[in-house]
Design a binder for these strands. Sequence first.
DNA 1: TATATAGGCAACCGTTTGATTGCGCAAATA
DNA 2: TATTTGCGCAATCAAACGGTTGCCTATATA
Lengths: 112, 112
Amino acid sequence: MIASLIMRRDVFQAIADPTRRAILSLLALNAMTPNAIAEHFDSSRQAISKHIKILSECQLVSQKQNGREIYYHFNPEKMKEVDMWMEQFRVQWESRFDQLDEILKQQNNKQL
Amino acid sequence: MIASLIMRRDVFQAIADPTRRAILSLLALNAMTPNAIAEHFDSSRQAISKHIKILSECQLVSQKQNGREIYYHFNPEKMKEVDMWMEQFRVQWESRFDQLDEILKQQNNKQL
DNA sequence: TATATAGGCAACCGTTTGATTGCGCAAATA
DNA sequence: TATTTGCGCAATCAAACGGTTGCCTATATA
């Protein structure tokens, strides 16, 4: 289908929604069925299913059918993409420690 | 204003847009004016300004006025929030190494 | 076999998004 | 001083989003 090729959801867009983030936090602890997930929220089962569909489309979750139940599993691989994107910024908040290192070095120099 | 209290943007929603992510990548390297940023994109200057406004509202960027020019700076502090949220999932992709550790341990036991 | 349960799919609807256009204002330049 | 430049603000619009409702199929249970 064209949709599966073109519409391919973005991970960043998927985690933009607070409900989807909460679902991911739940699934990271253990795999769950849509109904079990929906019990944790005020929204309807269908609303949650739509969120799950979006999470599936960008491969943040995978599914395993068991009879009429479908267990959704969190897929850490995809979340890594966010982590990798963050890498470019991590240097900046680690620079604080670098600055501290610099200060300590200078103090050592003074002591010598 | 009420807007500044209630509307307070979400960092996750801010980085959902690919253009905004690209802007952040640019600003992480050096502070820039809206016009300078817009030159890197096909969109109009106003479109970019709107993105900048969203990034400002969630404090992912800060501004420093210089005459009629406004330099926008990347603020790493806010990006940390995303990094902190990711922490809960990081365990999962690091578990691969744990599994490797487990295998190595068992092999050592065999050797003993 | 009849009924209840799990869960996907499609249609619909109000709100939000991202982009464009036009405008106004302050700072720089002629 | 007149003009250009930098940039924010407001209005407008199509597309996307998030939710609800209704329906259908398949599996489990009475």
